[in-house]
Design a protein around this nucleic acid. Structure first.
Lengths: 134, 134
DNA sequence: CGTCTCATGCAAACGATTCTCACTCTGCCG
DNA sequence: CGGCAGAGTGAGAATCGTTTGCATGAGACG
């Protein structure tokens, strides 16, 4: 059975109010800042449960860290993520789905899954970057 | 400067003779089995240098481990990888490239990179799986 | 309220990868 | 060929994100 605890509510709340992909450690940090008493392990556990339920999307950044986000569309979709601030755009990509299915079948593979994520700098971070470079 | 040592030759050799994606630890294991004396750290270093040189392709599996492979085509391309045995098919996907470029631009993102890999069970492993299930 | 469990928190455990450092060998020069 | 400088190596310690074990705490339902 699934219980609703103060900690779960807090994580859920935080994610509901964020549009960007965040790591478990970032979430933990943010919760502490909010004054929520919560252990890191609990954040990991909570986030994992939510991901299993399909309430959260998970992806791995270039460093291999797991990032979490509550996405608007609950089905399969892809993302365009700012590698700097985590800002995210959800993407539908019928062309990619088709490509994956076709190619998999062509080579006799079964149970084919695919990952397809775009990482870049959002408009804001691009501007910030340029002023830093100067 | 780049020196050619016994260890580097061994790694290079091993990879040249393998068609599948392998983790650094697997490579290390295989080299030990071959009777090559080589440290795990050295395998990691070598593989990293080769990847930097573009001699090796790197990707991360579902567990976040890095897998390495010497690909035929040295440019940008994608893979269809057997999640069980590592068997790999190299893929060109103009449609995916186009998609990534278009979508990135549409949302004002710059420096957009993308990952797109397919994981499945190759024909062989599919058969093996079925006989195990019985 | 009481009890039955699931959830939490801390600290220890983990696994992949990286770093440290003393020692070894390659590549190059005379 | 012999010697030297510095890149490369190996073994183990250190990192870092993540997971787990275990004693304690607290939802939910009677």
């Amino acid at each position: 059975m699934q219980r609703m605890t103060r900690q779960r509510a807090a994580v859920s709340d935080l994610l509901a109010g964020t549009d960007d992909f965040r790591s478990a450690q970032q979430l933990h940090e943010m919760l502490k800042d909010r004054g929520e008493g919560i252990g890191l392990a609990t954040v990991y556990r909570t986030v994992q449960v939510m991901a299993d339920n399909g309430d959260l999307d998970v992806l791995r950044n270039a460093d291999g860290e797991s990032l979490y986000r509550q996405c608007a569309s609950r089905g399969h979709h892809h993302h365009l993520v700012c590698r700097r601030c985590g800002a995210t755009v959800e993407l539908d990509a019928a062309s990619v789905e088709k490509w994956a299915a076709t190619v998999g079948a062509q080579h006799g593979f079964t149970a084919v899954e695919h990952t397809a994520e775009l990482f870049g700098l959002c408009a804001e971070c691009t501007a910030r970057q340029q002023s830093e470079d100067s």
